[in-house]
């Protein structure tokens, strides 16, 4: 699965894009976030419960219990501030 980070998530985690392999028991958006938090360090800090983040799966906004699969594009970013 391709993971994309934007804005302060990109600068905090220190990467814009990475590829991860999903274990069989990772099936929802929340599972992916748990998997990333387990990496600790900047990941745990950026994805902490106190942080307000948005998730998009295949370029559509997603909820925590939405399903995910290996070939998906998974993006993590702050609430948007364009316009």
């Amino acid at each position: 699965m391709k993971i994309l980070y934007f804005a302060w998530l990109r600068t905090t985690i220190g990467c814009a894009e990475e590829e991860i392999t999903l274990p069989d028991d990772v099936v929802t958006v929340a599972d992916v976030l748990d998997l990333l938090r387990e990496k600790g360090g900047a990941y745990a800090a950026a994805l902490g419960e106190d942080k307000v983040i948005r998730i998009a799966v295949n370029q559509d906004y997603a909820n925590m219990d939405d399903p995910v699969k290996q070939g998906d594009e998974f993006a993590i970013f702050p609430p948007v501030t364009g316009g």
Partner: peptide, 14 residues
């Protein structure tokens, strides 16, 4: 359109 794009279009200001 302005109200919607401000909350839905993925842009971030630095």
């Amino acid at each position: 359109l302005m109200d919607y794009l401000k909350t839905k279009a993925p842009f971030w200001k630095l």
